[in-house]
């Protein structure tokens, strides 16, 4: 056991995973903070399904998986922004759209697995649950660059985006381009979803987006501190997850990362149980 763990630390695949994972987690933490603040978690969820379909469509068509990921996610993000009024999409419409998109993904999966005669039978599982230990050096480089770009853009638009999120009408009156920000932000979420899919898989990227941000929002009320905390927590959780799965080989890294993220989020409930005043609103009591 220990020998295996020691050897895992020195392997290039582990270095790649740590390098790519760090930046992916940072981007996911920063984007996730605004996603939670804008109550658009459901959109992130929808994108996670689009990520699967996009990747499967690219594979079925014989292209690089990541091309499908990014094109699919960014396009879906823009589409969702377009459907919803003023850049905030409607739950039922999103739900309906991604129910079908996921169905389409299963169609592409069947198409791919039947046409390639089992050469990569596990492709579906890889996309759904991620394989961060399978990243090559080239893939790592691209993932790092994209993640750095996403983080930079988020930090660049953080102030107006925060304004537009907290008070949309006042921000619009003050000349903040609320609608453009809404579109741009969802495109960013799409790119981030494509990144996170490579780390933890399309089904689990929601956890990477929601858990650190949710924890940060519970821990502090100050927006920029929460933003930094969200990014920091995401990176720490990813490291913890990678370390755990290196120590215990039967533990898939995606699960370990998600477990760390969930544990941190759960811990915030113990540290600070309730922000809203207790017992003021209990409708049944009256």
């Amino acid at each position: 056991m220990t020998e295996l763990a020691v050897s895992a630390w020195g392997q290039p695949f582990f270095h790649n995973a740590v390098l790519a994972g760090t930046f992916i987690a940072l981007a996911a933490g920063l984007v996730g903070y605004f996603l939670v603040l804008r109550a658009q978690i459901f959109t992130g969820d929808a994108l996670s399904h689009v990520a699967f379909t996009g990747a499967m469509a690219a594979l079925a068509g014989g292209y690089d998986l990541r091309l499908g990921l990014f094109v699919g996610c960014v396009a879906a993000g823009l589409l969702l922004a377009g459907i919803g009024r003023s850049g905030r999409a409607d739950d039922v419409v999103i739900g309906s759209a991604f129910a079908w998109i996921l169905g389409l993904g299963s169609f592409f999966l069947t198409l791919y697995t039947t046409s390639r005669s089992g050469a990569m039978g596990g492709a579906g599982t890889t996309v759904l649950f991620g394989s961060i230990f399978g990243l090559s050096t080239g893939q790592t480089l691209v993932a790092v660059l994209v993640a750095v770009a996403i983080s930079a853009v988020v930090l660049l638009i953080a102030r107006p985006l925060l304004f537009a999120t907290v008070d949309e009408s006042v921000a619009a009156a003050r000349g903040v381009p609320v609608r453009v920000l809404g579109f741009g932000f969802l495109a960013l979420v799409g790119a981030c979803a494509g990144e996170a899919t490579q780390a933890v898989g399309s089904l689990l990227l929601l956890g990477l987006l929601a858990a650190p941000a949710g924890a940060a929002i519970r821990l502090t009320d100050r927006p920029f501190r929460a933003l930094a905390l969200s990014g920091g927590l995401a990176v720490a959780e990813l490291w913890a997850g990678l370390a755990a799965s290196a120590l215990i080989p039967s533990l898939p890294p995606s699960f370990a990362i998600m477990a760390a993220a969930t544990a941190v989020y759960g811990a915030t409930f113990l540290i600070r149980p309730q922000r809203a005043p207790l017992g003021t609103a209990s409708p049944a009591a009256g």
């Binding site: 969820d45 089904l203 689990l204 956890g207 929601a210 858990a211 949710g214 995606s254 993220a261 969930t262």
Partner: peptide
Amino acid sequence: AGESAATGVVQAFLLACGY
């Protein structure tokens, strides 16, 4: 926002458990 973040975390964690 709080509830949807919680729901999202629960969901991702359970999927991870399934995996």
